[in-house]
Amino acid sequence: MLVRQVVRHRPLSGRLFLTSATAAERPAVGQPAPACELAGLGNGTAVNTAQFKGKVVYVDFWASWCIPCAKSFPVLNQIHRDLRERGLQIVGVNVDEHSADADGFLQKHPADFTVGADAKGICPKAFGVVAMPSGYLIDRQGVIRHIHYGFREGEIDTLRADLEHLLGETPQVSAAFEPHLH
């Protein structure tokens, strides 16, 4: 029970104490999203999170052992189907140490959106992930605008609304761009 409590409260302690990605290094809302290379999963090809500039990108960190991640996949598939025409790109970043685990997960919970693997954990470190799953909403200029921690069914509408808001923004010249903080 004690172990469970400690593990559960780890995300909070990650904000308070120095870890590999300290609060100062972690990109905040309003800052540019890091670029990271992802290896292909299954039949997929390698992908870089920064290659979709000009689109609204949703970077979702997931793992085969993460139960809320499994619940989120059908929802993300639906959002992908509904909003991809308007310029949404979902990128699922798998953080499993063994790609076989990820492949098994994808057979049970197929992903219609782009997925890639980062077994070494470089990408979650660059984003400063504090929870599994974590979703980063990146606007057309490549700026992190919202961060969704975890997955709860009650938050699906908020996520969709946030994505639609970003999709509705007109692309601006970066010199005239001022981060719109929430």
Binding site: T19, E97, V129
Partner: peptide, 18 residues
């Protein structure tokens, strides 16, 4: 050592449960 949130694959295994 600190176990990062994305490194909990082994902790999440059934045999690791209390």
């Amino acid at each position: 050592s600190t176990v990062e949130p994305w490194e909990r694959g082994n902790l999440a295994r059934p045999e690791m449960a209390v």
